[in-house]
Amino acid sequence: MTNSIVIEGLSRYYNGFLALDNLSLEVKKNEDVALLGPNGAGKTTTLKILCGLIRPSSGTAYINGINVVEEREQAVSKIGAIVETPEFYPFLTPEETLSYLGGLRGMRAPGLKRRIKEVLRVVKLDEWSETKIGKFSRGMKQRLAVAQALLHDPPILILDEPTLGLDPRGMAEIRDLLKAVRKEKTVFFASHLLTEVVQVCDKVALIDRGRLLVYDRIAHLERKYRTLERAYLKITEGAI
């Protein structure tokens, strides 16, 4: 089976601080993997490298077999991503923003317009499609971030805390959405919400201080430690 994501010996220093330490990981096609770890474990750094936003100090990563470091544009064309807390241009509307991003991804009218309406309906922003984003709340921007990640129907979703800033209803809606798309997409996402992880993912990769501690099926970890939370607490014992 083809691997959607391959991480090979990734290391990354920030001014002498080692954020990622020889991390290696493989995510198979249509697998749904959560990247877990304490604050500063290296989760966002890993996702940023996969999205071509930063370069590794050593090692490399592949998206659908394409080297992210050497062929960034081709590699990121296969992903839909949310990294950190994304912001949008306040002078544009959701419709214009998605037209802009869709255009960069090679989508054209009328298919693009149809798809924009579809994703805005999915994230429940259809009534706000022509309102300037400058007026949006944090949660509404997060919904738009999900919409842009799904816009081009990518085979791989790379998401950094996708429900961050959402109210409980919004969190449940996005979670349901991820549960629906997981059948046909590879989902690789970082989260601190273990209940969310259990519902959306099959496997977890637990990292701390940039090192991979465990990469296993949730069901297996739950058998061994009773719950994912106990597994997390036990494995990361001693972390800040």
Binding site: Q74, V76, P86, E87
Partner: peptide, 14 residues
Amino acid sequence: EGKTGYTLFPNPVR
């Protein structure tokens, strides 16, 4: 500074 790059840069554009 405004973090809009997190949305713009992970696109297949140079």
